[in-house]
Every structure is written in C-alpha cells, then in structure tokens.
Amino acid sequence: MSIKLSVVDQSPVHGSHAAIDAPRLTIELAQLCDTLGYYRYWVAEHHDSIHFANPCPEIMIAAIASVTQNIRVGSGGVMLSHYSPLKVAESFKMMATLFPDRIDLGIGRAPGGTGLTSQALAYPHQPHHGDLYANQAQLLKGFIEGNLPDNNPFSTIKVLPDSSPQPELWMLGSSGGSAGLAGHLGYNIALARFIDPDNCHPSIFSEYLQQWQQAGHPQKPNKMVAIACICAETEAEAKLRAGTAVYRKLAAQLGMREAFLTPSEVQDRYREFPASHQAQYDHILNGYTVGTPEQCSEEINQLAQDFDCDEIATVAVTHSQADRLDSYTQLIKGF
C-alpha cells in the first residue's frame, strides 16, 4: 500500500521562541513540508490556550496556501458549533476559488476551548454545545455543494457568484461518535487517534462505511488516521523530544496547566513522580509513534494496514521549533 503522509499542526507555542512567533512558525513548517513532499497540511482550532496559538484556522489556511505550491491545505478542524454554516461555506469556497484543488474543510464537534470561551463565541446568544451539529453539518454541505433541497428556506442563496470551486469535505472524530454521521452525510472521515488512542479502533471505519453505503453516495469515501509522532535520528532522542508533549497531556489529566517544559525538565519531573504517575506517563508515550525513520515507518505502515487506509497524518508537538522541523525531515526519509 502506498501511504500518503500528511500533517496536522496545532500551532504549538514553542519554548524556544516568543509566543507571538507561533503562527509564523506554523507557516515555516508548512513551507518545509511542501518541499519535502507531504500530501496535506491541516491546522487545528484552539481557544484561550497557553499551548496552541491558532483560534482562526481559515486565516492560517489562506496564509499557508499563499506561500506553498503543491501541498493541500485545510482545517483539522473548524469547530462548527461556534459558527454559521453559511459563513464557513463562504470562507472556504473563497479559498477554494483562490487556491483551486488545494483546500480542505474539516469540521469537528468539540469546542476547542473552555466553557467560558464557548459562551463568549456564542454571545449574545447561548452556546448549543454541539446539539445542532448534525443539522449544521448537513446545511454546510448543502451550501458547499449548492444542492440544498427546494423546500429549504436557504436554497436560493448563492455562496459566490461562481460557486463551482469546492473544498474537500472532511469530518473529524476521535472515538467514533461522529463516524455514522459522517458516513450518512457523505463526508470523508479523519480519526484523531492522537487524542484518544485507547478508544480509536478500526471498527469506527466499519460503522462509517456501513452508513456511507446505506446512504448510497456515489463517490469513493476517503479515510485518514491522525497520530502523534516524533521522529529523530535515534530512538533515545525521539523519546526525549516526545517528553514535552507527553508531559503536557499528563499534566492536563492531572488538572495542571503550565507552559511546555524542555525535554530535560520533563525527565526531572518524571524522576520525581510517584510510580502511578510514571505508569500514566509511560502509557501516554506508548500511544505515540516515536523513534527513528525506520521505526516510525514500520509502525505507520502497520497502522495503515490495521485501519485499512492509505493516508496517515502526524501531529508533532515539541519544545523547540528546530526539533519539530527535524522530526518531519527525518520522518519522510522512511517512505
């Protein structure tokens, strides 16, 4: 199986740079991945975060697409519960017009932030916490494809004077909650295994395909799995670099919130942990793909086989931008 390698970038606030540099560093990595031959580059959406610096993926997508040549660029994803489906359709169809055949629109149900930010994003209305997500997703697809039924009150709306260019439509999930909906509506599906590897199983794709077939969509469905991956010249170095992201996830589980630690600081903390926290750390690390190009390639190929998909996207969060650039440079060598 020929595997397409892609990227999901959360725009981490690297400890090696000032926080204001984080969006620029995302663009720098995107340009590198374009030259290295990665297939797709998605940016995430987070609000009120000290770790991740992109609350508006549509702006970052346009910026990246304008300085890259071949790589597809998109959202992984737009947190649709906060937004008007029409406005999202307008933004992404505009980008699809400016950058033909290169724009992806991935949507998700999660809030991407705290309850307070959900309230602020919905103000002066009340947040609906994803209760309308299925209706929003269906309406968004209708606006994108220009095929809302005649009895829909919005059916006469033209998103653009020429609405023919379309972004590729994707729905995100991590543990299967959206798989059936994605298949029923006819969205491509991306599983965020990096969020919850313990509950992200190949059976999710089975439910998705069953719903796709029952709905009778004529086109071929696309599937992708997104994993946490840190690659380096040696396994020891890769595990050391991965510590920054692993500790952040552990800290979140323990109710702590602090800026990214250096790999050496993480090792110091690990040595001070009680055995239960060390076991928790080790479990998180085991859910990552970490190692040399050959080791990462072997594991990615196995995941592609297990999930029966031909595209794997990787998320790399490191303390320094140099380590992140190197991780993607090393990883592609294995393919």
Rank of each mutant, 00 (worst) to 15 (best):
Y123S: 15
E58I: 06
A190Y: 00
A182T: 05
I227L: 15
A245E: 02
L121H: 11
G130L: 04
D310I: 04
Q278T: 00
S320D: 13
Q31A: 13
L325I: 11
A179G: 04
D310Q: 15
Q210D: 10
P100F: 01
C33Y: 05
P153M: 07
W170L: 05
F143W: 10
F52M: 11
F154K: 12
T35V: 13
C56A: 15
G74A: 08
I71L: 11
A22I: 02
E237P: 06
A53L: 04
H82C: 08
N188P: 00
L132D: 15
F92L: 01
Y38T: 00
L172H: 07
L191H: 05
Q305S: 13
A134F: 06
N301K: 13
V266I: 04
G216S: 09
Q211H: 13
F92C: 01
I3R: 11
P165Y: 10
K249A: 04
Y41K: 05
E168R: 12
I3K: 09
E207I: 07
M1K: 11
Q166E: 10
K158L: 13
G115K: 12
L303V: 10
A251I: 02
V78D: 01
Q305P: 04
P111N: 05
A53S: 14
Q126S: 14
A62H: 08
A275F: 08
A316I: 02
P57Y: 07
H184D: 13
E294Q: 15
I204R: 02
Q253N: 14
A182I: 03
N222K: 14
K158F: 11
I204V: 11
P111D: 03
P23F: 08
E265R: 10
R257G: 09
I3F: 14
Y41H: 07
I312K: 00
L185V: 08
G177A: 12
Q330H: 14
N199C: 10
Y41C: 06
G142C: 08
Y38F: 15
M224G: 01
R257L: 12
K239R: 15
Y270A: 00
T26R: 11
I300V: 14
V67I: 14
M79S: 08
F52V: 05
I103T: 02
H128W: 10
A316R: 03
C33R: 07
A96G: 03
T244Q: 03
T289M: 11
L32F: 02
V290R: 08
P124F: 09
A89L: 06
P274M: 04
V317I: 15
S174N: 11
C229R: 00
V290D: 04
F92A: 00
A251N: 05
P218V: 12
Q119F: 10
V88H: 02
T318D: 12
H217K: 05
D101N: 14
T117N: 07
P197K: 12
L169W: 06
L25A: 01
I204F: 03
Q267F: 14
R324A: 13
G106Y: 00
D308I: 07
H283E: 12
N286H: 10
P111H: 05
L80D: 09
G115V: 09
R271K: 14
E265D: 13
L181Q: 11
Q138N: 11
N222P: 00
